[in-house]
Design a protein around this nucleic acid. Structure first.
Lengths: 210, 210
DNA sequence: TCAAAAGTGTTCTGATTACACCCATGT
DNA sequence: ACATGGGTGTAATCAGAACACTTTTGA
């Protein structure tokens, strides 16, 4: 078999629901040639780890919770995607129920980190703007898939919180009564019997996924 | 950036409708350690070509028609996927309207080639059985996507041929009258005015995609 | 008492399903 | 004449969309 010199990397699209709707976690690059640009957290894949394991390693470096699932998104392999040399990137999703799960952590390569609304991204390094564009399209189709919505919510959640996730992912406003009707039918969504109290309005029932 | 020794390959899942339903084009490996096993056509990605270009190169080597589209399926990167050494494979789909588009072509590495029903695969090399399993699952979801069905049909086709593709991809039997009703509504499917003659039964109207 | 979000049903429309017989052709 | 797939309509059911007001709480 021939040998090639292509670097294999993984990049992770870490998403959570925030004030600006769907938000993505980015880090700011300190050094040339992408100084000042923002990037998805990533790493070079090691000989001894699978692609999935490399993605999990990147996530676990950034996130306190060990049980974050990653899901492969797409592989990007344009010849000029990184001006420093030929590489391919296998991109992964990681969905967080809470932005605060991210550990503050910077190093010699990254000067800053933060969350950005997917509609108001800063200047991106490499082909990471393309990766995010692809991620947004895929995410819309993933709405119905098992687990996508649940990973973006805490264990117990109100119907309004659930509805908001659906609205953000689909990009459409949903009628509350129709939405309630569907959750009533859905076996996966269970009433915990508890209420979310302490807000300046009527307490809401808390639900969970089965 | 670190250097790794991971080989980047592309493998292509070439599919067409045949007597056995969905069929996949495979080649038989001549040499150890996978002697006698069957594999998806593939190649090592070169420094100077993108992943998509590498997949197109593999397809064009095998298929007479230049205009076959490829679509990325998934990337496979288990550490032990190839006993000869560490590699990752970016798998692609290619959908053919006719099995006969394949050019007969063997070389020093491959002793045989042929089509297999996706339900009756021979002994597969590498992780290619996994790749095909993933391909089958994805294909079901791709039914509604633009172009998937059309690429598996000739330019002009009868409603029965169209229905058969839907049935094979979805794995479900469809009622003929209900199916006709839906195609009547679908703007993409146009009556050519021509008929498919010369068969031992009533001639059928020929349709095309817009 | 006010602001804010929770909670709750009915009607209409369009899409999906189920179902059976005669027709045109080549052999 | 017969075997084979082509071609056709109606009724029932189900899912999705539209639509507005009262309730509960903390401030």
């Amino acid at each position: 078999m021939m040998v090639n010199k292509i670097i294999v990397a993984v990049d992770t699209v870490i998403l959570a629901i925030g004030d600006k709707g769907m938000e993505v976690f980015l880090i700011k690059i300190k050094n040339e040639p992408y100084e000042g640009c923002w990037a998805l957290p990533g790493a070079v894949v090691q000989d001894t780890e699978s692609l999935d394991d490399a993605a999990k390693r990147v996530i676990q470096q950034r996130v306190g919770d060990k049980r974050i699932h990653v899901k492969q998104l797409y592989s990007f392999g344009e010849v000029d995607r990184d001006v420093r040399g030929r590489s391919i990137s296998v991109a992964y999703f990681a969905l967080l129920s809470d932005k605060k799960l991210i550990k503050p952590m910077l190093n010699e390569q990254y000067s800053e980190m933060g969350w950005y609304g997917v509609d108001s991204l800063p200047k991106m390094a490499f082909d990471h703007a393309d990766i995010l564009k692809t991620a947004r399209i895929k995410l819309t189709f993933m709405l119905d898939e098992v687990g996508v919505v649940s990973k973006l919510l805490p264990k117990k959640f109100t119907l309004s919180e659930l509805q908001k996730v659906h609205e953000i992912l689909s990009g459409k406003k949903i009628d509350k009564r129709n939405f309630v009707k569907k959750t009533k039918i859905d076996d996966e969504i269970v009433d915990t019997g508890e209420m979310k109290k302490g807000e300046a309005f009527r307490p809401a029932k808390l639900f969970r996924f089965r």
